[in-house]
Design a protein around this nucleic acid. Structure first.
Lengths: 215, 215
DNA sequence: ACTTGTCCTGTCATGCCGTCAGCTTACCGT
DNA sequence: ACGGTAAGCTGACGGCATGACAGGACAAGT
């Protein structure tokens, strides 16, 4: 179903080939987290993988193509983020717990994938549809269930109905993404990294429920 | 005092030189808004400016150096953002107006400079101190006075004192920046561009005052 | 050992990078 | 008007990355 892995010139990749391919992806990932995206060169990736540039071009059309591969892998992984929101309660103190766990889980995911997410974010901002779609997959993993939660609270009359649930959820997820990507900014505002969660969680709670977080 | 403009090899730039330099910057700016950052080449900028690559290198060490120049210019411009918050009232309905004007002004600024801000954001995320500083200058133009406003409200007992004003202000500014940079994301959530302001403004109000926005 | 298809790399044409020497142009004092 | 001086620009060049291809190495089955 998922079609075998293929080289650029159409051959199917065997065991050894897939290993090489994977090694190239791993090295590229490593490279992305140590050099500016603009400076990542095929030749460096190939060197690090102990192979030649020609080999790289056998498996990927260019650096961007390989980056997309890594990004898609990560997007699959983002599915686990759904469970941070789906089926969770926002009532009273358990709502506080929910928001804290959401912030924590989201920040952890971003931190784990920060290098690739940086590139995805850039690509999306530049209007590249493929990167945009990947970014939306990640954000939606949280935003969709979050919007559902807001809608339910509104239906129960426990939240401000004048707000669009999708907009609220989207805003909160954007906030989390931005905070995760630029943690250093908060540090320079005097907010220590370990204080990030206690400061963001009440805002999430506030956004979802429209009420101050209970003690 | 502000030292004249100098070429890379130390000559002082005269009238004609400054014109060329400026033309190169303008073309680079244009280029950034039409091509992915990774694909912006010195030779293209030079061609567009009707000059040669060698001339480019006379005024800038490399593409990044020229980008920094553009970014610094923009950062100066960001000073006007202060007035969106400084001295504004958050009481009752005038608070609604304040938050709406803030959202509007901020989004407009970001839209106007989106290409260069994209690169600045990337550079900052990659840990480049020069880009980080520029980004903070822009964000602080809003975040600092906003934190002041929150602090004052807290002092008057009109806002939740358990939250760090700097963290709240930083979060809200991050949210605005993220929303501005990824307006298309909201569109894909079914939030039209013109609905962005009415949806973000109440959140800002909510974040600052801790209360639901009045009608 | 031979065949077959996968896998890798040497090599090459092309194009961008970044530098330098040297030519042209503008400005200034006399 | 004229020459001197510094600013301004570019052609040319070595170096390196890109991307394509053909051919050799290798593994597996017969």
């Amino acid at each position: 179903m998922t079609g075998q892995v293929r080289t650029v010139d159409g051959r199917v990749a065997g065991r050894r080939g897939q290993e090489t391919r994977q090694k190239l992806l791993d090295c590229l990932r490593e490279m992305l987290s140590t050099s500016p995206y603009r400076d990542v060169k095929v030749i460096d990736v190939a060197r690090m993988a102990g192979t030649s540039p020609a080999t790289f071009y056998q498996y990927f059309p260019d650096v961007e193509g390989a980056v997309l591969e890594i990004a898609e892998e990560m997007a699959k992984d983002a599915d686990t983020l759904k469970e941070l929101v789906a089926g969770k309660s926002w009532a009273g103190k358990s709502g506080t717990t929910t928001s804290e766990e959401l912030v924590d889980g989201f920040l952890a995911f971003w931190r784990k994938n920060d290098a690739i997410l940086r590139v995805v974010t850039l690509g999306a901002a530049e209007g590249d549809k493929r990167f945009f779609k990947i970014r939306m997959t990640v954000l939606n993993a949280v935003a969709k269930p979050l919007a559902e939660a807001v809608k339910e609270l509104q239906a129960k009359g426990q939240a401000d109905k004048s707000l669009d649930p999708a907009a609220v959820a989207g805003s909160l997820v954007s906030l989390l993404a931005s905070a995760a990507e630029h943690q250093k900014a908060f540090t320079s505002w005097g907010v220590k990294v370990k204080d990030l969660k206690p400061n963001l969680a009440p805002l999430v709670y506030l956004g979802v429920t429209g009420k101050k977080a209970p003690k």
